[in-house]
Design a protein around this nucleic acid. Sequence first.
DNA 1: CAATATACTGTATATAATTACAGTAATTAT
DNA 2: ATAATTACTGTAATTATATACAGTATATTG
Lengths: 201, 201
Amino acid sequence: MKNLTKRQEEILNLIKAHILDLGFPPTRADIARSLGFKSPNAAEQHLRAIEKKGFIKILSGASRGIVLSENENDQIPVIGLVAAGGPILAEENIEKTIPRSNNLLSDDIDYYLRVKGDSMVDIGIFEEDLIGVSKSANTKVGSVVVARINNEVTVKTLIEMSQNKVVLRPENQNYNDIIVNPQVEELAIEGSCVALLRESI
Amino acid sequence: MKNLTKRQEEILNLIKAHILDLGFPPTRADIARSLGFKSPNAAEQHLRAIEKKGFIKILSGASRGIVLSENENDQIPVIGLVAAGGPILAEENIEKTIPRSNNLLSDDIDYYLRVKGDSMVDIGIFEEDLIGVSKSANTKVGSVVVARINNEVTVKTLIEMSQNKVVLRPENQNYNDIIVNPQVEELAIEGSCVALLRESI
DNA sequence: CAATATACTGTATATAATTACAGTAATTAT
DNA sequence: ATAATTACTGTAATTATATACAGTATATTG
């Protein structure tokens, strides 16, 4: 999907704002008025350009027939079982997607990860729960993180993190700490857990 | 807000479906076509009636200018601490409301209840968690329910329920079962827990 | 360096859409 | 019993809207 110009983006935002405000898209004349164009045709041609770039669909003959293209960023992927090797967000790992809800949980969630196993039950993270993962939230000692060790993805509490020693703790007395030397083994902190969803109790 | 007739409700649903499907409201002619009216004026007059009852606002002069009135049912209340005595959903108990998200969790949630105490930690329900409560979901033995005993609201697992004996079990070894005789003590099952949200980990 | 894209003005027109007016008929409220 | 509401048909006019065509000027790309 090609990038929009500054002006085109302005118009797309105007359309979104209009929909949010009134519940339906603006007319060409509405757009022209808002941006000070003296001709509705200016708006028309911008719309054509934006459609060509794939951000909207224009329904011909219908008044206000501007349909916003499905924006993948409005959908949060739910990651089921992560295949060994590939990136977490690879197509084949996506179980489903759920619409990014207003402010139900943190805006900061990049994906949900379905929990496997019982290694975190002591802090109330159960099998089949969905964990909201943020890639950007800073992972400090004490955070619950999504880590990848030698191509296996796991959720644990980060206890220690130095150049040659990383300690990951399962929150379950039946399991032992995982101690990794990142110089020797492959280790990546994929993100940190910021929220939790349980779809059935 | 007065009740809609069957036909009016049908039209309101059609409008909502149109918006959900295409992103903008239908025209009078669209409505007439969908319902088999031979005149767009039939739709017009229905819209007027629906507006009069407060369910929509018609913006005059604007094509497709049908604005859905804010429906309070689109907001799910979050109940903080329940004041003794009054009903759970009383105004003063509502901590905030959150928009009913598409299908993030069950459609069936009437309110969220913020968990106090640690009596349910063994099944992963922690203090400050939000529990999605359904008033209509059938509460059977084994369900986690919201119960009110002598004006105090509590979340427990329903273990037994007969005419003169109801057993509610805390999911925490440190607590004992609560046994109530509904003939003697005041007991109400307010709803059952169908989902869980944790806003921070 | 020509072709294409961007960013508009200005005019015009076909058609999409709202909306008024005139009816009919059945049901419900006062 | 009468008025108001509900639920339509049918016609028509006004206005709202999309959209084509003809330009101008500048920037960007192949």
